[in-house]
């Protein structure tokens, strides 16, 4: 995902024009990259659209000769309470861990770090970014251990006189949400740190002289100035969080039952565990469509940069 702070566009002058060769010179270098994208990116999406209208499966009759079944997969999906629940869990997960957790947390961290001592920034930033650089699988294991019955979190709670709990069983969605906040906050922090460094000090000083409180300075000076960074950040982390699979897969596997089964996990289970490839494809289309909508909003925000 792109962060903000794109370089200024340079004015390009045209290289010497020689008509036919010029067109070839422009298009040919694009061919290998876009050929690969057509085969492994666009192709599968088109196939997915087709498969979502068939009863294709990995075993049984649907495996050898899939039939077109019209909208059956979609009808099944929209009348499937498991889908409705999964969609709801996904919305809660995305809003909780991205829009609120990572976004607000990242902004708060960037504000706290702004203007602090260099070494403090390096140490705290290093730890937060460390959580982000770590492979998702390892982060999943760590949080599984951290929240387990005898894990660190319960030990800390007991140390301060509170009761522990079986967090992964009693509140799996909250558990994966917090783990995802832990893992992803660094990205928002980096985006906001860069945006804050572009807010002129004089403006804040002037507001301060005029008697604006810290909160008022943030609301009326800082936030309006970093609005674009906020919008791109929100779009980026929403799209990333929508696709989170490994973290949830390792921590809860979508369970217990279906209590943390977000759309990617639901899709995985339908397609690869129950071998309903057609139904899985329909779910994938929904996920892609939701991603496409957010991506278009993101594109509108970025349009001026291209």
């Amino acid at each position: 995902m792109v962060a903000v702070g794109l370089p200024e566009r340079t004015v390009t002058r045209r290289p010497p024009a020689r008509r036919g060769r010029r067109a070839a010179g422009r298009v040919l270098p694009l061919v290998p990259a876009f050929g690969l994208l057509a085969l492994f990116f666009v192709g599968p999406i088109l196939w997915c659209v087709y498969a979502s209208f068939t009863d294709i499966s990995l075993t049984g009759a649907g495996a050898s000769s899939p039939h077109l079944v019209g909208l059956r997969n979609y009808r099944q999906m929209f009348s499937d309470p498991a889908f409705a629940k999964s969609l709801w869990l996904t919305v809660v997960f995305v809003i909780g861990s991205a829009v609120i957790g990572q976004n607000v947390g990242g902004l708060a961290l960037a504000l706290l770090m702004n203007g602090r001592h260099r070494i403090v920034r390096a140490v705290v930033g290093g730890i937060v970014v460390g959580a982000w650089v770590l492979p998702e699988l390892v982060a999943g294991f760590m949080w599984y251990a951290f929240l387990s019955d005898h894990g660190t979190f319960n030990a800390i709670l007991r140390a301060v006189g509170l009761h522990g709990g079986s967090w992964l069983y009693s509140s799996p969605l909250a558990a994966v949400t917090i783990a995802n906040v832990w893992r992803g906050t660094a990205f928002s922090m980096l985006v906001y740190s860069a945006a804050l460094s572009n807010v002129p000090d004089e403006l804040l000083e002037a507001a301060s002289v005029d008697g604006a409180s810290g909160w008022a300075r943030l609301r009326h000076v800082t936030l309006p100035l970093i609005r674009r960074a906020m919008l791109t950040n929100l779009m980026t982390i929403t799209l990333q969080t929508l696709a989170v699979f490994t973290l949830i897969f390792v921590m809860t596997g979508g369970g217990p039952g279906t209590k943390s089964q977000t759309l990617p996990i639901f899709m995985y289970q339908e397609a690869f565990k129950f071998y309903h490839l057609g139904y899985g494809a329909a779910l994938a289309i929904v996920l892609l469509a939701v991603g496409a909508v957010f991506s278009l909003v993101y594109l509108r925000a970025m349009r001026k940069e291209v």
Binding site: M1, F41, P44, I45, W47, C48, A51, M235, L239, L242, A243, V244, F245, P264, M267, Y268, A271, L277, G280, A281, L283, A284, I285, L287, L288, G291, A292, F294, S295, Y298, L299
Partner: peptide, 10 residues
């Protein structure tokens, strides 16, 4: 912006 996770099925 498209979720790669979703492309895994196709």
């Amino acid at each position: 912006g498209l979720p790669v996770t979703a492309i895994m099925v196709p």
